[in-house]
């Protein structure tokens, strides 16, 4: 079996795998080829990101498209999650006479885990698939080839800018998601009781510590990077044809969502180890 990883603007990487008819070997090999290929693109990303010329204009444009255009969706989702979480948690806490703990519990849940993960999953669905489909479509219509022929570096212009924009924008979006989540929680609390906004947020900030906020913000950087990288990689290396566009978008979402959970699991372990 011979697999060619087409890398525009660079030489073609060819990997040869023996035992052509062995299905298990082939599936196993394809997995490692995918890992190798993704690693290759990651290394090239780091090489290109620090090499001039820099595509600032395109980076700002992509940051606007990726960040600003996702703001409403992520904020609304955050608000609903905060609202629902509070409504669902209240009866259980009431049984133990611990309703006063509601702001602290919701704040820690949203800031530490629910805000970053839910935002990242929505981001993967919207931005990851969007990047995958856009680049795959550009691949199909030979726009990436045209860029290369006209002297541009399509990897830097298309790939690097999108990955960087996703990495920078997700943490900002998570701040919005957390804020709107806490506002949703405040609204939910006020459906049954009355608490002033000032008091509610005072209770929240009393319960939150530095170690709740910083690790969760750091992991969102990795979430954003993984989502941007996988979306761009799947689009950039998609097969020619309209089928390739659908596959690229689909696999970008699936793989990016999976990566969010894997990174989250690793982040929790590291945070836990550091705090012990």
């Amino acid at each position: 079996m011979k697999v060619e990883i087409e890398d525009k603007n660079e030489s073609v990487v060819t990997i040869t795998v023996n035992k052509e008819n062995d299905v298990k070997t082939t599936v196993f090999s394809l997995f490692f080829i995918e890992v190798y290929s993704l690693s290759y693109f990651t290394l090239r990303f780091f090489k290109e990101v620090f090499t001039p010329p820099y595509e600032f204009k395109e980076l700002i444009k992509q940051s606007f498209l990726i960040g600003y255009k996702s703001l409403a969706l992520i904020s609304i989702t955050g608000f609903i999650i905060g609202l629902v979480l509070t409504i669902q948690s209240r009866p259980t806490l009431a049984k133990f006479g611990a309703v006063s703990w509601l702001p602290a519990m919701v704040a820690v849940s949203i800031v530490r885990e629910i805000g970053p993960v839910i935002s990242a999953l929505i981001f993967a669905g919207k931005v990851g698939s969007g990047i995958g489909a856009e680049l795959a479509s550009m691949n199909v219509t030979e726009q990436i080839d045209a860029m290369q022929v006209s002297g541009a570096n399509p990897f830097k212009y298309l790939f690097v800018t999108r990955v960087l924009a996703a990495t920078l924008m997700l943490p900002i979006l998570v701040v919005f998601a957390d804020t709107f989540g806490l506002l949703g929680s405040y609204v939910a609390v006020n459906l049954k009781d009355y608490v002033s906004l000032h008091l509610y947020f005072s209770l929240i900030f009393q319960s939150l510590e530095f170690k709740d906020i910083v690790p969760s913000m750091i992991k969102t950087v990795f979430f954003g990077f993984a989502i941007g990288l996988i979306g761009a990689y799947k689009g950039y290396t998609s097969n020619k044809g309209t089928e390739g566009v659908g596959k690229a978008a689909n696999s970008a979402v699936v793989l990016a969502s999976l990566m969010v959970f894997i990174i989250d699991m690793i982040a929790v372990q590291i945070t836990s180890l550091l705090q012990d």
Binding site: S137, M138, T141, E142, Q143, D145, A146, M147, V149, G151
Partner: peptide, 15 residues
């Protein structure tokens, strides 16, 4: 290669 121009079948215009 900059001295070579390439007209693609589809035009390959940037949408």
């Amino acid at each position: 290669r900059r001295k070579i121009g390439f007209l693609f079948q589809s035009g390959a215009l940037y949408d």
